[in-house]
Every structure is written in C-alpha cells, then in structure tokens.
Amino acid sequence: MSQEREGLFYITDNEQFSLSLTDDDKRDLLTASKQIEVLEALNSYANALSQAADKGVTAELASAASTLATSTSGLVSAASPTSAAIIEPAGKFAGDLAGIALKNQYALKIRQIVRNVDPFVQRIAEQMPAALAEIIDGTRHQVENYQVSRGLTLAELRSDRRSTRLDLYREYLLARADVDGAWTLQTALENSAGIFAKLAAAHKALAENAPNSEAAIQDFATVANDLAALIKAVREARASK
C-alpha cells in the first residue's frame, strides 16, 4: 500500500513522495510473533517426524516435540499480533514417511513421542484459527485497498498520452499479477482453519495407531505441505490496525 501510494504521488508530480515507509505506515504494520512461533515449531516437528521415520533419529524428534509443546503456551491470548521475525516454510515430506509404521526398530519410540505430543497438536488446531482471525480480517482489508490503489495507478498511466498501448498492456499485466498474488495469499489464510482441522485428525490417527498406518501417514504428509503453504502466506501477511 505504501509503495503504491508513494509511486502514484511520484508519477503525478507530487513533491511529497517518499522512498520508504512513513512513520504511520510503520505503526500500521502487524506481524504475528506468537502465531509464527507456533507454526515454526509445528513445521519443525513435522520435518523431524519425517527424518525420524526415515533414519530412526528420535533425539531430534523428541527435541522438536518439546519445543512444540512449549510454544503452545499463550497462543490463545495471541489474537493481537506483534512484530517478530518470519520464517520460510520447510521442505515437503517424502513418501518415505511410511517408515514410521511398526515394521522398523525405532517405531515404538517414535509412536510414543507422537502420542505425547498429540494433545499439543490438538490444542494448536483448536486455538490457531482464532489467533489468526485478526490477521485474516486485516489482510483482506489491505488486499481490497491495494487492488483499488493499483487501479488508480493504471488509470493515471492511461491518462498520459505519451503511454503507448503496449506500455499500458504491460503495466496492466504487472498489476494483475500483483493483485492476483495478493489474493492467493489471502485465500490461503482464509482456508487455514480447514488445514488445522485436517492436521489434528491426521495426527490423532498416528497417535492412536490407526489400522491403516500408511494412509494416516500420507494424510499427515499432505496436510504438512498445506501447512508450509500457510506459513508462506503468514510470512507475506501485513495487516493494518
């Protein structure tokens, strides 16, 4: 929003344009420190689970599970996000996650860790949608305003008779891609409640040693990939107060 506003000031010869965020812009920026902490811990746990299944490295899984359990403290009160460093989503799960089935020597240890951490995963699934609600509302408002601002800039460019049709078409394509990208991230945020519900169900199936373990593992792996996409969306999110 800041870039679009200041860019429009610049091309309309407004001498008040700025090349950086204004103080008001900075005050309006919100990130989600607690939410990101929990998502980071959940993502690390999911990847440690994959590694443990492949290699039998249970120490790293136990450590990740402990961090995840600790991170859930205070999540329910994190409805008003504050600034924090944002993480990149980790890699996707491999099909080798099926190694967690009870056919290898580490399976019992892994299964016990999964059982111990399941209450915390269930708590995250229950509380995270509410903790993300303010961010989702704020970013929707910003995306809507951003789309309007992009349209105003395009209209200003079209009013300049020096702009060729090719120039205008290129600018339209750029604006369209930017707005589409913003809505893609917004959609990922708004669909997040479904991701957490699926995550809870898939993890519960692992913890309870469901009869079809490989199917439960695949469900968990699929949701883990959705989680990585959600983390990317939260990473990009900026909401106004």
Rank of each mutant, 00 (worst) to 15 (best):
L19V: 03
L19K: 06
L21E: 13
D24Q: 13
D25Q: 04
D25T: 01
R27A: 08
R27M: 05
R27F: 01
D28I: 00
L29K: 12
T31P: 04
A32D: 10
S33M: 03
I36A: 10
A41H: 05
L42D: 12
L42F: 03
S44D: 13
Y45P: 13
N47A: 09
N47D: 05
A48R: 07
Q51L: 09
A52Y: 00
A52M: 01
A52L: 01
A53V: 00
A53I: 00
A53Y: 00
D54R: 13
K55L: 11
K55G: 04
K55C: 04
L61F: 00
L61E: 05
S66L: 05
S71Y: 01
T72W: 03
V76G: 12
V76E: 15
A78M: 08
A78Q: 10
A78G: 12
A79G: 12
P81E: 06
T82W: 02
A84N: 11
A85D: 11
I86T: 08
I87T: 15
E88H: 14
P89H: 05
P89K: 09
K92N: 08
G95A: 15
D96N: 12
L97C: 09
I100E: 12
Y106N: 10
Y106I: 02
K109Y: 01
I110N: 10
I110M: 08
I110C: 09
I113S: 08
I113N: 13
V117C: 08
V117A: 06
P119S: 13
P119C: 10
P119T: 08
V121M: 09
V121C: 07
Q122R: 15
R123K: 15
R123C: 04
I124M: 11
I124Q: 13
E126M: 08
Q127L: 14
P129S: 06
A131R: 09
A133H: 07
E134M: 04
I135V: 11
D137M: 03
T139A: 04
R140L: 03
Q142G: 06
Q142L: 07
V143E: 09
V143H: 04
N145D: 14
N145E: 14
N145W: 00
N145V: 03
N145G: 13
V148W: 03
V148T: 15
V148N: 14
S149Q: 14
R150G: 05
G151N: 13
G151M: 04
T153D: 07
T153K: 09
A155Q: 10
A155T: 06
E156K: 14
S159Y: 01
D160A: 12
R162F: 02
T164R: 14
